[in-house]
Computed example of a mutant assay.
Amino acid sequence: MSFARPLPMLLLTTLVLTSPIISASDTWQDAPRHPVILTVTGELGCCPSGQALFDLERLQALPQVEVRTQTPWTDQQDNYRGPRLSVLIDSLQGRGEWLEATALNDYATRFNLMAARQYPVILATHKNGQPMSVRDKGPIWILYPLSDSPELRKEEHQQSMVWQLKTLHLGR
């Protein structure tokens, strides 16, 4: 009995398992191919400049999570998809205890990362399978799984559910 895989499948598996989120010639601080929709700053082990830039493609290259939830600003439960906030921070080798999130309209809030590590808090980029527009709280919305975790239905967490997110700053 042979356990050898056909060469095309082996190459595909290798590519999928070893492909970095960005190419080897790029770094997180290099401008992505498409318009930047998120800038992350702070103590980032990945980036000597302390800054990482994301377009939608780079965010979608991170593992995606789907959350079905209703929020105080929506009328029904919807499906949201995007990377976990904790995975983004970990992929950047981020060090810190809190995040300051700023929206396109300059609304800013600071919150502890504890809940983002304990729950599947996501950077939602899609709602019900469609990319989120600025008109619909996009292109990025920090989303807590409120329907699955009633203990998160507190003002402190709702204040950190920043929509139209443009920057994150990681601090100690």
Score class of each variant (00 low, 15 high):
residue 1 M to E: 09
residue 4 A to P: 00
residue 4 A to D: 05
residue 4 A to Q: 10
residue 6 P to H: 11
residue 11 L to R: 08
residue 13 T to H: 09
residue 14 T to Q: 14
residue 14 T to V: 14
residue 14 T to C: 13
residue 15 L to I: 10
residue 15 L to S: 10
residue 16 V to F: 11
residue 18 T to Y: 07
residue 18 T to Q: 13
residue 18 T to V: 15
residue 19 S to L: 15
residue 19 S to G: 15
residue 20 P to L: 14
residue 22 I to L: 03
residue 23 S to I: 03
residue 23 S to M: 08
residue 25 S to R: 14
residue 26 D to Q: 15
residue 27 T to R: 15
residue 29 Q to C: 09
residue 29 Q to T: 15
residue 30 D to N: 15
residue 33 R to W: 03
residue 34 H to I: 03
residue 35 P to Y: 07
residue 35 P to K: 14
residue 39 T to V: 11
residue 39 T to F: 01
residue 41 T to N: 13
residue 42 G to S: 06
residue 42 G to V: 04
residue 43 E to Y: 03
residue 44 L to T: 01
residue 44 L to W: 04
residue 46 C to W: 08
residue 47 C to Q: 03
residue 48 P to S: 12
residue 48 P to F: 04
residue 49 S to Q: 02
residue 50 G to Q: 12
residue 51 Q to V: 04
residue 51 Q to M: 09
residue 51 Q to P: 00
residue 54 F to G: 06
residue 55 D to H: 02
residue 58 R to Y: 02
residue 58 R to Q: 06
residue 59 L to V: 06
residue 61 A to P: 05
residue 61 A to R: 15
residue 62 L to M: 01
residue 62 L to I: 00
residue 63 P to T: 14
residue 64 Q to F: 07
residue 67 V to C: 10
residue 67 V to S: 04
residue 67 V to K: 11
residue 68 R to S: 13
residue 69 T to W: 05
residue 71 T to C: 06
residue 72 P to R: 13
residue 73 W to S: 01
residue 73 W to P: 01
residue 74 T to Q: 07
residue 75 D to Q: 05
residue 75 D to C: 01
residue 76 Q to E: 13
residue 78 D to I: 08
residue 79 N to Y: 08
residue 81 R to Y: 02
residue 84 R to D: 01
residue 84 R to F: 05
residue 85 L to Y: 07
residue 87 V to L: 06
residue 88 L to H: 04
residue 90 D to H: 12
residue 92 L to F: 06
residue 93 Q to E: 12
residue 93 Q to A: 11
residue 95 R to Q: 14
residue 95 R to E: 13
residue 96 G to Y: 04
residue 96 G to H: 02
residue 98 W to F: 12
residue 99 L to N: 06
residue 99 L to Q: 08
residue 101 A to T: 06
residue 101 A to Y: 06
residue 108 A to E: 04
residue 108 A to V: 03
residue 109 T to I: 12
residue 110 R to L: 09
residue 110 R to S: 13
residue 110 R to E: 12
residue 111 F to L: 10
residue 118 Q to H: 09
residue 119 Y to M: 04
residue 120 P to W: 13
residue 122 I to C: 04
residue 124 A to F: 02
residue 128 N to A: 14
residue 129 G to M: 05
residue 129 G to R: 11
residue 132 M to L: 11
residue 133 S to F: 04
residue 133 S to V: 05
residue 134 V to G: 04
residue 135 R to M: 09
residue 136 D to V: 09
residue 137 K to D: 00
residue 140 I to E: 01
residue 140 I to T: 01
residue 140 I to G: 00
residue 141 W to C: 01
residue 142 I to C: 03
residue 145 P to H: 02
residue 147 S to T: 15
residue 147 S to M: 09
residue 148 D to L: 12
residue 150 P to N: 10
residue 151 E to Q: 15
residue 152 L to M: 10
residue 152 L to Y: 07
residue 154 K to T: 07
residue 154 K to N: 07
residue 157 H to T: 01
residue 157 H to C: 03
residue 157 H to N: 10
residue 159 Q to C: 02
residue 159 Q to P: 00
residue 160 S to R: 12
residue 162 V to P: 00
residue 162 V to C: 02
residue 163 W to T: 12
residue 163 W to D: 11
residue 163 W to Q: 13
residue 165 L to Q: 01
residue 167 T to R: 02
residue 168 L to T: 11
